[in-house]
Write a protein that binds this DNA or RNA. Structure first.
Lengths: 175, 175
DNA sequence: AGTTTTATGTCAGTGTTGTTGACTTTCCAA
DNA sequence: TTGGAAAGTCAACAACACTGACATAAAACT
């Protein structure tokens, strides 16, 4: 067992609230784990993207358009948390390369609704397959209780406004 | 409870091995959680670094020098996984600004041993305090079992060679 | 002793991705 | 009809990664 030295004191307070006592060392290990894991997490997609001459920003755009087809530029901006100039550069190449289609909004003609084309869907799949495989492998090694805990801690680590985005997408899922 | 919809089927195989059945949707949620959480994870240090005119690369250097005082440039390179030119640019400014001290190696005079100065230690503390506080808060919200699972999944998500670095540091801790 | 390899540092150029600021077009809504 | 929102563009800039070439000192090898 790899993690067996992470021993945390837990104490039951009178109110029934569970308290955690964490050493600096334990927290620093968590920080490093996050750093190394995120690198592993992006390594496979990065290799694929490089093959096609794209970067991580393209991946993010493809991912969230795939997740919410017809989403607007503004919505994408608030999810990705970048400036419109930064997003636009990425979006423009994706549209030029016919991976993304931008349709003028029906209700509000100022808006653009973004969709993946057939090629876009294919690339998104290739990227997603690689990343999901890494995630699946990690989940398998760690076991179901670990996965539950993993997700719980990650959600608590997000900024509050990002939790909102995360929650909103959860509600609109169809599985 | 935020995570209660993450329902995973678990089945006990004849050999006693536990199997996980994960939908694409569940894996994609994990991917997004990772993306949003990493942003939260780096948000606080980024603000502090910006204040002093440094970037994330400086933070990483300070962190790992702090963790392994006297480490060599080569060792830092293999941990950070960047080119020497990239690291050198960062290291040079840190040395110029007297946050890091570079001493010629005693055993092997080709090597440089890196240490934090008083000022370097102070900045590293400030960054670390912010990041640990975020981590502590997330751990508190999630509870002890979740923390255990979090660390387990993260380790499984790392590349194998990075697990080696991670493990080596674990063995040398003193708590 | 002479050669090779290793560790480090540097210069120059390039690419991705982010930023700010200024400006335009379109179009919804009060 | 006027104000503001959504989208897009141009220009300049910065952080941080990359490649490739080259220099120096010291260790290691033959």
């Amino acid at each position: 067992m790899i993690c067996d030295e992470v021993v945390m004191s837990e104490r039951q307070s009178p109110g029934g609230q569970s308290l955690l006592f964490l050493t600096d060392e334990q927290l620093r290990k968590g920080i490093e784990a996050m750093f190394f894991a995120y690198r592993g997490f992006t390594a496979d997609p990065d290799r694929i993207l490089n093959k096609y001459g794209y970067g991580r920003a393209h991946h993010r755009a493809l991912h969230f358009i795939s997740r919410a087809p017809g989403t607007t530029v503004n919505n994408l901006l608030s999810i990705l948390g970048v400036t419109k100039q930064s997003l636009n550069r990425v979006l423009r190449t994706l549209i030029e390369d016919e991976l993304v289609e931008s349709r003028v909004g029906t209700r509000d003609k100022r808006e653009r609704n973004l969709f993946l084309t057939e090629n876009g869907t294919a690339l998104e799949q290739e990227l997603s397959d690689a990343q999901r495989e890494r995630m699946r492998q990690a989940y398998r090694e760690a076991g179901p209780e670990a996965v539950q805990g993993f997700r719980t801690v990650l959600e608590a680590m997000m900024d509050t406004d990002m939790q909102r985005h995360f929650t909103r997408m959860k509600e609109s899922r169809h599985d």
